[in-house]
Simulated assay, not measured.
Amino acid sequence: MSNEKMISTIILTNGHEERLKSSIDSIINQDYPNKELIIVSTKSSEMLDEYEINPMIKIHIKPELSGSKVRNFALNQVEGEYVFFIDPQDTLLNDQSLSQLYKDMEDNNSNFLSTTFITLRDGLFYFGEPQEDVNPITTDDYWFYFVKIREIRPIYGKLFGKEILNNLNVDIQSDQ
């Protein structure tokens, strides 16, 4: 067993996206050793059936769920300490993407990683680089930044510490 914390990647899909296979394969091919992939689909597909034998992948077909209920179901399946969302139409840049995200999270003692511009550390969101130029985002004003700066609104492409997701008790009625 690896010493690295497990990264749970979540793909929310209807099962028939054109690039879903590429998205799944980009996670499977990651060099990061301690990972799982959770796929929650509202529809079954032959393509998803191809991945059922892979023990790293957990596929759930949930036609009765929609919107935030699909996301919440997926989060309840997570075993990892870190959670990464990927859009079913996207792929990771290279086979070291999860390893680099993990390294950045650990090196910065963060529990939220969006881009080089936004991190959550010690209970505060930070914008900008280098560190001395960051502007803290507090619990009082983070929704302003989420709405104003579209970059951080979607959950896709973000690495979260599981504990922060448990503390975000927000019932969002959109797919974001």
Results as ranks from 00 to 15, higher is better:
161 G>R: 10
91 T>W: 11
108 N>W: 00
173 Q>A: 05
157 G>H: 02
35 K>R: 06
138 T>L: 10
59 I>D: 01
51 Y>S: 05
131 Q>R: 13
25 D>A: 08
147 V>I: 14
66 S>N: 15
96 Q>P: 04
55 P>F: 08
155 I>D: 01
102 Y>R: 09
11 I>N: 03
15 G>Q: 07
121 R>L: 07
135 N>G: 07
29 N>S: 01
47 M>G: 10
131 Q>M: 11
174 S>D: 08
2 S>Y: 05
92 L>G: 02
151 E>F: 14
154 P>N: 03
74 A>Q: 00
157 G>M: 00
24 I>M: 04
94 N>I: 00
51 Y>F: 03
49 D>Y: 14
150 R>G: 14
2 S>N: 02
127 F>A: 11
104 D>Q: 10
69 K>A: 14
174 S>H: 11
112 F>W: 13
98 L>C: 05
78 V>K: 12
150 R>P: 09
150 R>D: 11
128 G>R: 05
16 H>K: 10
76 N>F: 06
1 M>P: 09
168 L>K: 11
149 I>W: 09
18 E>S: 09
129 E>W: 12
155 I>P: 02
14 N>I: 05
121 R>M: 03
73 F>I: 12
70 V>P: 02
100 Q>W: 12
149 I>K: 09
4 E>N: 02
67 G>I: 07
137 I>D: 03
74 A>E: 00
78 V>G: 08
10 I>L: 10
32 Y>D: 08
55 P>T: 06
57 I>W: 06
62 K>I: 10
147 V>S: 10
151 E>T: 04
150 R>Q: 11
90 D>E: 11
96 Q>Y: 14
42 T>S: 03
29 N>P: 00
112 F>P: 04
53 I>W: 08
81 E>V: 04
126 Y>W: 12
46 E>W: 07
3 N>C: 11
162 K>M: 01
148 K>V: 11
11 I>D: 08
157 G>T: 00
26 S>P: 13
122 D>Y: 05
167 N>V: 03
50 E>F: 12
65 L>A: 08
87 D>N: 04
164 I>A: 07
19 R>W: 14
109 N>T: 11
172 I>N: 09
77 Q>R: 10
132 E>H: 11
102 Y>F: 15
18 E>L: 12
88 P>L: 01
28 I>T: 04
145 Y>K: 05
83 V>Q: 08
140 D>E: 06
75 L>R: 09
127 F>S: 03
139 T>S: 00
37 L>W: 05
148 K>S: 09
8 S>C: 00
110 S>M: 13
163 E>H: 09
86 I>A: 01
8 S>E: 00
56 M>W: 10
107 D>N: 14
79 E>F: 01
57 I>N: 09
150 R>T: 14
38 I>L: 13
174 S>R: 07
21 K>V: 14
42 T>Y: 02
133 D>N: 14
77 Q>E: 13
141 D>K: 01
80 G>A: 09
65 L>S: 12
78 V>R: 08
50 E>R: 13
148 K>F: 04
176 Q>A: 13
174 S>T: 05
155 I>W: 00
34 N>V: 05
46 E>C: 03
121 R>K: 06
98 L>A: 10
69 K>L: 15
32 Y>C: 11
75 L>V: 13
93 L>T: 07
